[in-house]
Design a protein around this nucleic acid. Structure first.
Lengths: 151, 151
DNA sequence: ATATTTTAGTTACAATTGAAACCAACCGCA
DNA sequence: TGCGGTTGGTTTCAATTGTAACTAAAATAT
């Protein structure tokens, strides 16, 4: 009857994922920004460095799934704020060696519980079974999609 | 022992959602852009208008979960390309009344199957049971998160 | 050894985006 | 009827981002 292709945006998976994840990260971003003057990129960089120290900018980029230019800029800002320290690798003078500064750790230790809270608040809407399924499904899609985009 | 808060980014739900959805929509965006010279915002606008015609810009913004400035700009571009038509509501002269043009429908009819394919390809990684859980879980989180962000 | 290619990271410039100001039309109400 | 407040939509300006070009160092090949 319509003669036209039909697509309902609201039930279209990529769209739903995108909207959900955007409203989610915007909500979080606002908090980081207001309370700690951190952009999401900056915070993710710090999160990586808090988990794994003395790594290069490239590795930060890999672990945050962001591109190297974004990371370069985030690092510049974090350096200016004194939240990280940077030195040069002895083995490869191109590479930097990054770690949180003392001040950086202070911020980190404040943000982490906040982030975990946020996650908890979100998961509170699901029961144990749903959480398991969600974790498993995200895992599957993650792997499938990531190595798809590698190719 | 560490004396520091601990957060593993890779297993942090908001982060995983965000990375997954970003790689996903970037992949799609590239196709829309290359083949049809459409940005995601433009395509979403068209998708809404294909599903529900003669609505206002505000309603497009609501249905796409994007802000009105972005929509205003997308509409301007779509108008220039001749993919939509715009008139003014008789009841409220502030409101526009938007619909796809004939050319717009031609593009729409080409993009929809592509989008559906993309979704199918993604869902192919999941079995029937997983798909059901995913749909249900997204639904729950969607509702919870959306009316949280309303407040 | 030295030329060639690749890699880490930065910079420069254009394009996109976001926030706030803005205009016109509508609404509610005195 | 007219005055404050709100709403639909656009514009403006600054900030953020993406792309490409670039430098320096390392790896690879000749």
């Amino acid at each position: 009857m319509p003669g036209h292709a039909l697509l309902e945006l609201e039930s279209f998976l990529p769209y739903r994922l995108s909207v959900l994840s955007n409203t989610l990260s915007q909500a979080i971003a606002r908090v980081y920004d207001k309370r700690f003057d951190l952009s999401v990129t900056e915070w993710r960089t710090m999160a990586v460095l808090g988990y794994r120290s003395d790594i290069s900018a490239r590795e930060v980029a890999e672990r945050t799934a962001m591109d190297k230019v974004a990371i370069s800029r985030a690092l510049a800002r974090l350096l200016k704020k004194g939240l990280i320290e940077r030195s040069t690798s002895r083995h490869d003078k191109r590479q930097s060696v990054l770690r949180l500064s003392e001040d950086g750790w202070k911020i980190y230790d404040q943000v982490v519980p906040l982030a975990l809270d946020h996650e908890k608040r979100l998961l509170a809407h699901l029961n144990a079974e749903e959480r398991e399924w969600l974790a498993r499904i995200l895992d599957t899609l993650w792997k499938a999609e990531l190595d798809e985009s590698m190719r």
